[in-house]
Design a protein around this nucleic acid. Structure first.
Length: 295
DNA sequence: AGGCAGGTGGCCA
DNA sequence: TGGCCACCTGCC
């Protein structure tokens, strides 16, 4: 039994959000490693960081981390939440003046932002996501960390690296509830092991070529590639098209029967260089609209 | 209790 | 290119 984690004191972040927007940001399908604690705080793990996140009564964010890694987490959070970028200015550049539906989505989730996650683990998370709901993806990812990840601080494990995954058999991976995704992950891991620097280079090159490269990996198509580039590399022009976005574009933009690639092209031209940011608002709004009422 | 899920790849016309 | 279908499995 490991000693209980000693958490640092709470420290404020220069960011205020409505609680439901924070929930949508952390647990709305961008990341799969945030859980809500019984005391209402969020606990998340990414890269070599673990943090607790909560809010003051005015919505101001505050964080705390295991005492031995606070300095690292402070830097990590700044990058993870893109605290240095001017979010309001980015929203201003979206075409909400001429797009009433977008305006509604922006108003419904004020402050919703795109996370900047580690590239490799974003790839892993979204390779798990094919035809799965968020709860189930979170389960797969939790099992991968628990069984194959390194311990970061007592009680918290990182996601396994791709190098580590290359040494795990397909059959063992399947035991993490991955189903047919296990084979894709296995094959990708072996490919990456045989091609050192491949991921790092993919993260660094321009959007279009990076996407092309990602799509050569087994189990990675346009949708997953766009998610990885948007949430794991800050490529805001990436416009992931899934079943939800297909529905939005059909119902609200009159693009019924358009194919995913056509919708993606429309999205990038209509919403501009920050199309991915717009996409996240459309996605959040549509998900909430579909959610059945609970009494 | 069974259908269905933030897709992808392969095979056919 | 366009349309189908198998691929795994555990939640709601």
């Amino acid at each position: 039994m490991p000693a209980a984690t000693v958490w640092s004191a709470w420290k404020k972040l220069p960011l205020a959000l409505p609680p439901d927007v924070l929930a949508e940001t952390l647990d709305g399908g961008q990341s799969f490693r945030w859980i809500k604690n019984t005391d209402g705080a969020w606990i998340g793990i990414w890269g070599d960081c673990v943090a607790r996140l909560s809010q003051t009564d005015r919505g101001m964010l505050r964080w705390s981390a295991p005492i031995e890694i606070t300095a690292r987490v402070e830097r990590g959070l700044k990058s993870y939440l893109s605290l240095e970028s001017d979010h309001a200015a980015q929203i201003e550049t979206l075409p909400w003046r001429s797009d009433a539906h977008l305006a509604t989505c922006l108003k419904t989730f004020p402050g919703l932002r795109i996370l900047r996650q580690p590239f490799g683990e974003t790839l892993l998370g979204f390779m798990c996501s094919a035809t799965k709901q968020i709860v189930q993806i979170k389960q797969m990812v939790a099992l991968l960390a628990e069984r194959h990840g390194e311990e970061l601080v007592p009680g918290f494990r990182q996601l396994p690296t791709w190098a580590k995954l290359a040494s795990v058999s397909d059959a063992t991976l399947r035991e993490c509830k991955l189903g047919f995704r296990a084979r894709h992950i296995s094959e990708t891991a072996r490919y990456l092991a045989a091609n050192p620097g491949w991921l790092e280079k993919t993260e660094a090159i321009p959007y279009a070529v990076a996407k092309e490269r990602l799509c050569t990996l087994p189990g990675v198509g346009e949708k997953v590639a766009d998610c990885v580039l948007l949430f794991g590399a800050g490529r805001m022009e990436a416009f992931p098209v899934d079943v939800w976005i297909l529905k939005v574009m059909a119902r609200r933009y009159g693009l019924a029967d358009w194919k995913p690639a056509q919708v993606a092209h429309f999205g990038r031209t209509h919403f501009g260089p920050l199309a991915g940011l717009a996409q996240q608002y459309l996605f959040a709004y549509e998900r909430r609209a579909a959610k059945p009422f609970v009494i």
